[in-house]
């Protein structure tokens, strides 16, 4: 199974990289941009017989290692 994990800064925490990029886009004339936020995407392939168990395992991986639950939220998607 293939999983796609999108990780981003928790809402409300500052995202300096996003803010700076937002400002740079404005300076280039893209004034219709109202916000920019950065995230990371991780693709995982897992040999799994039981899709539900694999999804639960990915969830655990996110909490334990892939995301930092202190400052990050994440979404897990199945891509194949």
């Amino acid at each position: 199974m293939k999983f796609r994990i999108d990780i981003r800064r928790k809402e409300g925490l500052s995202d300096p990289e996003g803010m700076t990029t937002h400002k740079a886009l404005h300076n280039l004339g893209y004034t219709d941009v109202t916000s920019a936020h950065f995230g990371r995407t991780i693709y995982l392939e897992i040999e799994a017989a039981d899709p539900a168990a694999a999804a639960a395992e990915v969830e655990t991986m996110c909490r334990q290692l892939l995301a930092n639950p202190v400052i990050e939220d994440y979404d897990i998607g199945v891509v194949g």
Partner: peptide, 12 residues
């Protein structure tokens, strides 16, 4: 207590 974490921006 985790929400109390601050995020730094060295560029600012």
């Amino acid at each position: 207590k985790r929400p109390s974490v601050q995020v730094g921006d060295p560029f600012e």
